[in-house]
């Protein structure tokens, strides 16, 4: 059952990622990205990372993606503006990406991941565990991240303001 679900979600993720790469229209690219993000959220559910799946859906699909679509709508003259790469660029990029994929796959699958790659070792963390370690072990990064978000908020507002 889990295997079937994994293959379905992996197919959704890969198909929409391919859609992101090949689609010419930038709005369609963003919609394909929605498929990838949703598929990855489903994979998180499969991996017992419920909190992360929900965060992925809220922040990525509900926030970042809408921001991106918003950006597209504010910065394009017509829906059909295409910026096609030249054929040479596309070929080179494809070859590099293929090499990269082959390389990473061979490296990661042959590597000896020490703590047994056979199955889950311990019970997966619950929401409360994630929250606790976020406010104890990882308190400093958490605070830095919140300061970063504040800086980003002010910076984005400053950058995007209209010149008077």
């Amino acid at each position: 059952m889990d295997a079937v679900a994994f293959y379905i979600f992996a197919a959704v993720v890969l198909a929409s990622a391919v859609g992101v790469v090949v689609s010419k229209n930038i709005v369609r690219t963003a919609v394909c990205l929605l498929g990838t993000l949703g598929g990855v959220a489903c994979l998180y559910f499969l991996l017992d990372a419920n909190l992360l799946a929900a965060i992925q859906l809220i922040v990525y699909a509900g926030g970042t993606l809408i921001l991106i679509v918003f950006g597209v709508m504010l910065t394009s003259q017509s829906p059909w503006v295409g910026f096609k790469p030249t054929r040479g660029q596309a070929v080179v990029a494809t070859i590099v990406a293929l090499l990269l994929a082959v390389g990473i796959i061979t490296l990661t699958t042959t590597a000896d991941w020490r703590p047994s790659a056979e199955g889950p070792l311990a019970a997966s963390p619950k929401v409360a565990d994630v929250g606790n370690s976020l406010l104890t072990t990882y308190l400093a990064p958490f605070e830095v991240a919140s300061v970063l978000l504040l800086v980003v908020m002010i910076g984005a507002a400053y950058l995007a303001r209209t010149e008077k």
Binding site: V27, I58, G62, V69
Partner: peptide
Amino acid sequence: DLDVALLFILAMLGIEVLGVILAGWASN
């Protein structure tokens, strides 16, 4: 009975916006 049910429902309500934006955009 998800342990993150609240966040899940919020996320679902948030995704709806994208559809409205696309509807407006695609209508030309």
